[in-house]
Design a protein around this nucleic acid. Sequence first.
DNA 1: TTTAGTTCGTTCCATTACCGAACTAATTAC
DNA 2: GTAATTAGTTCGGTAATGGAACGAACTAAA
Lengths: 404, 404
Amino acid sequence: MNDAPRISRQFSLCMVMEAIVHCGPISRASVAKQTGLSKQTISEIARQLEDDGWIRETGRTSGHVGRSAVTYEIVPDAACIATIDLGGTKVRAAIADLSCQVLAEVTEPTDERGGLHVVRQIARLCREAAEHNGIAYEKLRMAVVGVPGVPDPQHGRVVMAPNVSGFDTLDVKAALGAELGVEILLENDVNLAAIGEHWIGSATGVDDLAYIALGTGIGAGVMVGGTLVRGFGNAAGELGFLPFGTDPFEAESLKVGALERVTGTVGIRRRYQEIAGRGLDVPGIFDAAGKGDAAALQVLEETARYVARAVASICAITNPGKVVLGGSIGGRAELVNRVREFLPQCFPYPVEIGVSELGSRVAIVGGAAVGLTHLHTTLFAGGVPGAEISLPPAKVVKLVEAAQ
Amino acid sequence: MNDAPRISRQFSLCMVMEAIVHCGPISRASVAKQTGLSKQTISEIARQLEDDGWIRETGRTSGHVGRSAVTYEIVPDAACIATIDLGGTKVRAAIADLSCQVLAEVTEPTDERGGLHVVRQIARLCREAAEHNGIAYEKLRMAVVGVPGVPDPQHGRVVMAPNVSGFDTLDVKAALGAELGVEILLENDVNLAAIGEHWIGSATGVDDLAYIALGTGIGAGVMVGGTLVRGFGNAAGELGFLPFGTDPFEAESLKVGALERVTGTVGIRRRYQEIAGRGLDVPGIFDAAGKGDAAALQVLEETARYVARAVASICAITNPGKVVLGGSIGGRAELVNRVREFLPQCFPYPVEIGVSELGSRVAIVGGAAVGLTHLHTTLFAGGVPGAEISLPPAKVVKLVEAAQ
DNA sequence: TTTAGTTCGTTCCATTACCGAACTAATTAC
DNA sequence: GTAATTAGTTCGGTAATGGAACGAACTAAA
């Protein structure tokens, strides 16, 4: 019955892997110092890991006093995961390998026919991305899909996703799983964005944070103590339903959200239309404000006030150390500066407001973080409680430039 | 160097303790089945625990087929913690023992001189509570103090606590530590309330929840995944600063909070005064509403709407499975029913709204939960990551009636 | 009352995992 | 070349655990 290694061994193995992942090529002696385990144990574990193909010798040290040491590193392509950012207009896919490199990504317009067509498109993109990087497809262990809606873990579908047709009835998880032959993890794209910024974006080291995405609508990914807040029904971060901006008790507010009505694309354009008497798209309004258009300036300022109030709401409830703004309009300086100005006027504690550093790749990076954590855990922690490999810090991870 | 037991032993020991704490008097054979460890290991660990005075034989099984088994149980008074609920008008103290019994409590009016006088009062109450229950004071390992403000872990003081004078400058933690001679843990009282309701109140089994306290002010304790959200500056749950109710950009709102201005005692009384032209205290207004007073009814309904919006805000951000209302006015049926009516009108997802079951003892119970978890962890988990003893579920724990 | 069947708990032994000391090997500083 | 230093292996010794075997204690039924 007991052919599995003892938990203490699994624990040690996990520590060794963490040291190797974090500290790049490293000698066994250094690992011993870092983990506190004896040299003998490290050699034993290293031998086993090398036999199983997870690590390999990579060179020798030199220049220091004393005998030169053999250094070991992760075999990057021993396993990999796919990460997909599914948007209403574009799909991005990338491969991340065991060494936590996020490899070049592939982008395409989303298949407009929706449903199963999109599932097949995603599967094809994953295969292409793997091939593109010379990675054998069999090494793929799982796929993380960021979706613009609320994943329903019960039925594997995605509810509240008006931008991708057919995903509210299709069992996406099962369909894509059958297509790719690996485990699938569905996650809200804004949640992934929060995780991405936390890993290697503008919120590294801040374990309590919120990422606010401002685009077609308004949404947030909230992290507490380094963990994502998903909520009881996976619906955490639905800022559009914050009860201000418009009367929250009107029927329309119940449908699209009181705040969404004024901070969503539609709401912003309507407000400009009402004041200026002419229509413009949102980037157009922002540009007009830059040129001194009074109506546009008013709309911009109102929007910033609403966003500031949304930030204040989050701060009043979870009190994050930093709030990162992102999304197509959330990162624009004219908005961010005004939010930075208004927030201290309606919330008394100081809160740092940052801008997304990863831009359009943020969800892909977040998906990689989730997938790699899951991969490391299943491969090396073996279900031992408390045994976890944290992802290497930002400076170790390089984002390879898109090769397409 | 290595006189500490191996982590695998500590891990097993932890599992054995958890089984004994959870399953009351239990035989070693049953523990073996439950933990998956061998009978031999259990006997070894049990012998050690018995030698160290943590567990004891408590009887024998009989009636079943086969040899009768010796059953073991926790030695309840092998160690205990103190839990204190410090309010503006009253101080409560109770002792909780290793077997998770919350023993009879002691209540007194808060020493009005504040500061060090209150610290001494707390220390005296702890000694009295211990004596009251025939527990040797030396068995006390730590004290958890629920305070009506924001604990500052840096300086051991309590900021934002207008109801207890002198605590904003005094190093309460150090002073009380010196007085009692044990480790002190300061925590916001509303946070403790959330933990209390989660442990043995109306939110057992709901790991994502919020407890809203409505009394002098409005505040919340938020739990995500079974863990309390403290926030970056320990200021999570400051609902008074939610940006609606009054104009959040007014100077007054920045000082006391936009929502606090209308949902706090002062705000409710002012609103009634304005409409009815006469003054009443808040319970009086509620009673008047029950008798059909139109002005009181209007104030009550407005208040319920504000609370509903506060609940909606929490739901939009952390999406808890249940929201528990408590505090001096939060538990009143006329308010709760109206909130239950208004919430679905401003928030689209269903949210369960409950009422505090523990009433005025909720913070004491929450403090006990925190203290006992800490106690179990330090005594038996010995700093091993992942080794944790969860508190026994509600049905195992009996709340002894107050003996005073 | 006896006996069969069952469960409890102990003893004994093999295995795994680990540490530490002693030792060999390789490299630099002088 | 020699001393100093660091890397890595070999060789006991110990802690933790599982499993088999066995005696002890108990119930139920013959």
